[in-house]
Design a binder for these strands. Structure first.
Lengths: 213, 213
DNA sequence: GTTTTCATGTAACCCGTTACATGATTCA
DNA sequence: TGAATCATGTAACGGGTTACATGAAAAC
């Protein structure tokens, strides 16, 4: 009966949030929306089956939240608080370090970034550089396509493509800044990440276009 | 037996392309990839069933492409060329003018823009302004969330959110430029759309975040 | 005491993908 | 003649959504 192989970013995000602190589903969902690319509400119809799957796989367990806050009535637990098992922690660590091609998909990158605080410095580097080279590829594709079609295609589409290209260029610059900051931090002190507007240039975030060149 | 209600952007995009010129599936797919948000390959597994559905609904018909190019062997038609029926043209016109909330979803907006050449000026206006107000809403949401979380959340996430916010701001400016250009065109001459870099500011295109505030 | 919000879940469906199967045409 | 690419299609699955059903706790 055990449900079929739910995987992908959702698993990653859930494990990451529970890694920070145990939580129940409802709250998890709200955090999830913040983490999964700025907005994008994931629904209960995805969340609860997902949690069930993680339970079945032994990566999380229910914990009855026997805490100090519940006031009067005895422990008829209403909320189901989930927490990571050791296997869950291992799995999270594995996902954090996974830097395969899919990891640069816009969504996955956003989630990776959200958990950078629990990510080793070298892995952070790999992720940022991987993402950047992906974006550079995207950029040159767009550039080529623009050059190819110049004058041939509808002006509106052209404007859109230029807009898109410049967006990608922005992203590359932004990533470069992040990378340089990481490098400085390795050598130098331990100041916060991108705490200032060095160039006044910080741009757009996790977006989606199903990349296929 | 008729397949189940395939709808959404794909239908719109197919009708739009066939509106410009009759085409067979394989070529359609390539054009589709250009139109549907800069990249993003739609697969045959979606395309052909989609075409079948449009056939069943009488919006397109097969046309045997009896042309001058086929050299020797008699007309054993290999390619199936599709073209719009009058009903198909009506449907396309309807979709073009449809300016309901879903029309501002990133994907749909990109497709709308791709067919602006066959879109009446007032409708273009409605679409651009609708899109802009959506983006303004998105912007203020992000802004609020950033203000709320300042200092509270992880620095990397913060950087990402700032990047996202500025991306949205760029998009608003870009839309404003397009809108102003449309207005000038109504009053004045008939020059090309956004043919220059007036402010040097033209940005990112059709992206996806499943909008849910 | 009733309405909101918190909280958990399921069933049906939607839109799309991958992997596969098939065959014609073009090119070396 | 065999390989590449053009061209059309189907079956199985995947990851998500909506709409629904249910109930406890908090707020008014």
């Amino acid at each position: 009966m055990a449900t079929g192989r739910r995987s992908g970013v959702l698993e990653f995000a859930i494990l990451g949030l529970l890694h920070d602190a145990p939580m129940h589903g409802y709250e998890l969902r709200k955090r999830l929306n913040a983490v999964m690319g700025s907005f994008r509400a994931i629904s209960y119809g995805s969340l609860y089956p997902g949690l069930k799957d993680l339970l079945d796989r032994g990566l999380i367990v229910e914990a009855g939240a026997a805490d100090a806050s519940a006031p009067v009535l005895s422990g008829r637990r209403a909320k189901i608080v989930y927490e990571l098992t050791p296997e869950g922690k291992d799995r999270f660590a594995e996902l954090v370090s996974r830097t395969g091609p899919e990891s640069w998909e816009d969504e996955a990158f956003g989630v990776h970034l959200a958990f950078f605080a629990s990510t080793p410095a070298e892995v952070r580097m790999r992720i940022l550089e991987g993402r950047r080279s992906r974006m550079e590829e995207r950029r040159s594709n767009l550039h080529a396509s623009l050059a190819r079609n110049r004058e041939r295609i509808d002006t509106y589409t052209l404007a859109l493509q230029r807009h898109g290209l410049e967006g990608v260029e922005r992203e590359v610059r932004w990533l470069t800044e992040l990378i340089e900051h990481e490098q400085n931090e390795r050598r130098g002190g331990s100041s916060a990440v991108v705490d200032d507007r060095t160039t006044g240039d910080t741009g757009a975030g996790p977006r989606r276009p199903r990349t296929r060149g």
